[in-house]
Nucleic acid binder design. Structure first.
Lengths: 216, 216
DNA sequence: GTCTATATGCGGATAGAC
DNA sequence: GTCTATCCGCATATAGAC
């Protein structure tokens, strides 16, 4: 009947970490919320940090997987030239937005957790997240390089950085301003973001130093 | 000869906070680095958090002041229609980049401190920062609304969020990848960012729901 | 695997002498 | 204003019985 102790701990930790914060939440809080023994955490996970990374992996893997499969599909459908910029960006931005919009508390928890990591996690924890995120970033950068042959790859990487930042900021604001704010029109916000990014990516490079045509 | 105790504490705290992190750095670390007595912090600042906010204000006020005066100048020079989008964005983005490029450790410390706040500060501390930043944000949003009459103010606010995110991400990455990376070409990065944002801001709104003219 | 009890350490803050 | 000594709380982690 009762779920495995390990699951209970993960659930409770996810809830508390996202609500009360990472540092603020003690093992005692978690084990009492999960109604398991204090020592169970160290028995099953080894340490508080190991528990945290387990929570994070469980929470963020789905999003990153969807980003990968989404891009897979786009590329299999597209012709030789690869999918267009706007589609790529939508595939990148979509999954976190979907998670955000999920039913019940799940969506909000996802956002809050993201915010907590961003604002409280130490380097090791962030490294875990980066480990998940890096392959995604690389695949998308590659796709965008192909879609934007006029840009140097370096410039594409820079713009990808801008895009990631814009997305992150949007997510974080969502969690800070609970409701009534502009950002809470999900569809509108996602549309605006994708448009903004697509146009930015398609901009001419600042100074023409690369191949081909005329200088200024 | 020796600087005032209070200054010594501020300097030491700034250094340690930016290097070792906010939570990791204890009062004992700070006072020993500053070679003052442990009790001096509480005597001069009242608490560790109060010390932290003092450090932050000292570090970030200059940047925000420059942003305001920069916009003042632009507006006094411009005509009735106000300054153009690209100039506004440059005035917004420039000061943190300048701080970044400052001689010696100062620039790097600024970045690292920014990163630490972003990743470690609690809500109260972030509120302090927001208090400084909010007026800046509002002034710039207003200027952009004027420069972009085709957009609803709400859409401008959204895009401003994207811009802030892109800038923040750039700053944070700078601090994570010490050197050898794309982002370290300061001028190039700033130029790319401004271009990216300017084009994004000037994009047509996703769907035309506002006043006046033609349909789709 | 689950529990109780406890070791161990750190860190912020303060009392009170000088 | 500056110092020493200390209080106090809390958190992680573990030892060892069941």
């Amino acid at each position: 009947m009762t779920p495995e102790t390990k699951e209970r701990i993960l659930d409770a930790a996810e809830r508390l970490f996202s609500e009360a914060g990472l540092r603020t939440t003690s093992l005692r809080d978690i084990t009492s919320e999960a109604r398991v023994n204090l020592a169970a955490v160290n028995y099953h996970f080894g340490s508080k940090e190991a528990l945290l990374t387990a929570v994070l992996e469980r929470a963020f893997n789905p999003v990153n997987k969807k980003r990968i499969t989404g891009l897979d599909e786009l590329e299999s459908q597209a012709g030789e030239s690869g999918p267009p910029v706007e589609d790529i960006l939508l595939a990148f931005v979509g999954p976190p937005f979907d998670a955000w919009g999920e039913s019940g508390d799940r969506g909000l928890r996802f956002l809050k957790l993201l915010g907590q990591i961003h604002t409280e996690a130490n380097e090791d924890v962030q490294a875990v997240l980066l480990g998940q995120f890096k392959p995604v970033l690389e695949r998308y950068t590659k796709a965008l390089v192909r879609a934007l042959p006029a840009l140097e790859p370096l410039e594409v990487s820079r713009r990808m950085l801008f895009a990631v930042g814009a997305l992150a900021q949007t997510m974080l604001s969502a969690n800070r301003f609970p409701q009534g704010l502009a950002i809470n029109d999900l569809d509108q916000t996602r549309e605006s973001l994708v448009r903004f990014l697509a146009v930015g990516f398609s901009a001419e490079p600042p100074n023409v130093r690369a191949a081909g045509g005329g200088g200024s």
